[in-house]
């Protein structure tokens, strides 16, 4: 047990770094692109502040279509885009491209759902006070929904972590890939157990942190 552990230690550090890289890139993409997309899809829906039925249909359709793809297929389908962006379709940075592509509409949907929880009356009160749409978004919707948004991001992070294991298929590396290569292909059960245990710890840590922050932010 300890021998094989020492043997894979360098690999383990490398894999942890790769997982962190994939996770950070795709989380950043989901917040920077998925967040605005989620706000926009809410605002353009019927009865909302920027009601635009056709734009809503396009955005909503896009989110649903991307989310319909099994992730493995998305990876393969996006190889040309990945090559164009990164210059290669192999490695953790390359794997971050399809990860981000899957993460953006996923997070957009979570953002949209959180913002829908804000009572209509609160938005109306802001309108009655003469607030503009950007003011309502930044000072009412995002503030009132902030703990839900943090929990959404937490769910995202955990899902993306398990996606990174699949990304190992295209040479993305990472901790999940390590579990598959050593534990599954080489029948080194103990290595698999260790890597899975590490994943369990990471997931617990993410969820614990997310819950704590959300609770701190929630004054409702």
């Amino acid at each position: 047990m300890s021998d094989s552990l020492i043997e894979i230690l360098p690999d383990l550090w490398l894999a942890l770094g790769q997982t962190a890289l994939m996770l950070l890139v795709s989380l950043a993409a989901s917040v920077l692109l998925g967040g605005p997309l989620g706000v926009l899809v809410l605002l353009t829906d019927r009865g909302q502040l920027l009601q635009r039925p056709w734009l809503f249909a396009v955005l909503n359709g896009f989110i649903n279509v991307v989310r319909s793809f099994p992730f493995v297929i998305l990876i393969v389908a996006l190889v040309p885009l990945t090559r164009w962006l990164i210059g290669s379709s192999i490695g953790p940075l390359a794997a971050a491209v399809p990860l981000s592509f899957a993460a953006v509409p996923y997070f957009a949907r979570l953002v949209e759902q959180s913002l829908r929880e804000v009572p209509r009356g609160v938005v109306e009160a802001a309108e009655a006070m003469g607030a503009s749409v950007p003011q309502i978004v930044f000072k009412v919707l995002l503030v009132e929904a902030r703990s839900g948004l943090v929990l959404g991001l937490t769910v995202m992070a955990v899902s993306l972590l398990s996606y990174t294991a699949v990304a190992g298929v295209v040479g993305g590396g990472g901790i999940g890939d390590l579990a598959i290569r050593y534990g599954y292909y080489r029948f080194q059960t103990n290595v698999m157990l260790i890597t899975v245990a590490i994943l369990v710890v990471i997931v617990q840590a993410i969820q614990f942190t997310g819950n704590r922050i959300a609770a701190r932010l929630d004054k409702r």
């Binding site: 009572p119 009356g121 609160v122 109306e124 009160a125 309108e127 009655a128 006070m129 003469g130 607030a131 503009s132 009412v140 503030v143 009132e144 902030r146 932010l217 929630d218 004054k219 409702r220």
Partner: peptide
């Protein structure tokens, strides 16, 4: 929006910002 600043409004459900 300017004109609305001169018209206050209160509601049955208060509609306060809960995180403020």
């Amino acid at each position: 929006r300017q004109a609305r600043r001169r018209i206050g409004m209160i509601f049955q459900q208060f509609n306060l910002l809960h995180n403020h």
